[in-house]
Amino acid sequence: MAAAPPTSPAKPAHQVVTWGASADRQGEAPRDRSYRMVVRTSAGGTGTRVHLSNAFGDQPVTFDSVYAGKRREGAQLVPGSNRPLTFGGGGSVTVAPGDSVFSDPLSGRLTAQSDLVVSFHVLSAGGPSTGHGMAMQTSYATAGNHSAEEGAESWTDRTGSWYYLDAVSVEKDRRTSAVVALGDSITDGWQSSSDTNRRWPDYLSRRLQSATGSGIKGVANEGISGNKVLEDGAGVSALNRLDRDVLSQPGVSTVFLFEGINDIKSHSGVSVEEMVAGYREIIARSHAVGTCVVGATVLPFKGWSEFDPESEAVRQGVNAFIRTSGELDGVADFDKMLRSPYDQERLLPFFDGGDHLHPNDKGMQALADAVDLRSLECDR
């Protein structure tokens, strides 16, 4: 009898991030509490994995029951959709301080542009918790372990934050990749309508799902309100969180850099040269791992309380670098798209969310529409 031909080892699954939110330090971490986190997918796929983070904790966190299901409405799930997740084959996992963990892949298909609900019970915790403060999405919490329940009755506490969950990925073919938006409150979605997925990365995601010529289908929103490029403060700076929040995301092929207004308007004396040096470091570190970088110009903010001619001069210098340096793989001119033709230091009132800094829903959509989808893909 002839020997059977040797079998080729199975290729590892190609994971692509379908949702993400930057981890940050939150309040005291209670024990014996369940969380029901509602997130919006971008790319659809199989083999769903969730990523739980204890990046800012100083004590171990034990998750003894983690489920993923499809939302029907509010905290209620589609009957039969809530299924347990495992970690290394076990139903519970303890995450050390500063660490994080991916679940095992879940069988079945996760639909693009759908509400995924990840429910988990925190058996033991303490010290600061890890999460994302400004979700612009209602999620739920409750005392005790109710993660396996599909009904909404036990989920009495509402929250506008995400806790512990900071990414979800799916298996896709190797031609599919993701773009990760690195930004501040504008990317985080402030002044967009809550519970409607009208942040500009959401609009970009919808464009990408319907685009036949693009292999980029995953979108992760890694914006933090108040975040800066150069200095820690409202969240770890863009430079210091680039690896964790952006370059480590599964399947990322493109970094979308839209950040700098908080450095510029803070009256810290930051110069154009310092901002450009920060951008160049992000570009160099991203290129070093084969990732494209698209940069967006900084929006006008005249009318905001911190506006002054000195800050405006820095903004103009930064935007000149973004537009003309040639060091980025692509440019999205957000400034040109949203500024007033009558006073180019101001947002056009039609796009102004009311504070002269953050765009409204129409402005968020205009930002996404200003992105040339072809610019998101480069030869690296």
Score class of each variant (00 low, 15 high):
1 M>Q: 11
9 P>I: 08
10 A>N: 02
20 G>W: 04
22 S>W: 01
23 A>S: 11
27 G>Y: 06
28 E>D: 11
34 S>I: 10
35 Y>L: 04
39 V>P: 07
42 S>C: 03
43 A>E: 14
47 G>C: 06
56 F>V: 03
56 F>M: 06
58 D>Y: 03
59 Q>I: 00
59 Q>K: 15
63 F>S: 07
69 G>W: 04
70 K>A: 14
72 R>E: 15
74 G>V: 08
74 G>H: 07
75 A>W: 10
76 Q>A: 15
78 V>C: 00
83 R>L: 11
91 G>Y: 00
91 G>W: 02
92 S>L: 00
95 V>A: 00
100 S>W: 01
103 S>P: 02
105 P>V: 08
107 S>R: 12
109 R>K: 14
110 L>F: 00
112 A>P: 01
114 S>P: 08
116 L>W: 11
116 L>T: 11
117 V>Y: 01
120 F>V: 01
121 H>G: 03
125 A>N: 01
132 H>P: 09
137 Q>G: 05
139 S>G: 12
142 T>L: 04
142 T>P: 03
146 H>S: 12
156 T>G: 02
157 D>S: 11
157 D>M: 09
159 T>D: 06
167 A>P: 00
169 S>T: 12
175 R>H: 11
179 V>G: 10
180 V>C: 03
181 A>N: 10
191 Q>T: 15
191 Q>D: 14
197 N>D: 15
197 N>L: 00
200 W>A: 07
203 Y>T: 08
205 S>K: 06
213 G>R: 12
216 I>C: 06
223 G>K: 10
228 K>L: 02
229 V>A: 10
238 A>F: 01
241 R>M: 06
248 S>E: 08
249 Q>L: 08
260 G>S: 13
265 K>N: 06
265 K>M: 14
266 S>K: 02
267 H>M: 04
269 G>I: 03
269 G>Y: 03
271 S>W: 10
272 V>D: 01
272 V>S: 06
273 E>C: 08
285 R>H: 04
290 G>Q: 07
294 V>W: 09
303 G>E: 08
304 W>L: 12
308 D>I: 08
309 P>T: 09
321 F>S: 05
321 F>A: 04
323 R>G: 10
327 E>S: 09
334 F>D: 00
334 F>H: 08
338 L>R: 05
356 H>T: 07
359 P>E: 10
365 Q>S: 07
373 L>E: 13
374 R>Y: 01
380 R>M: 05
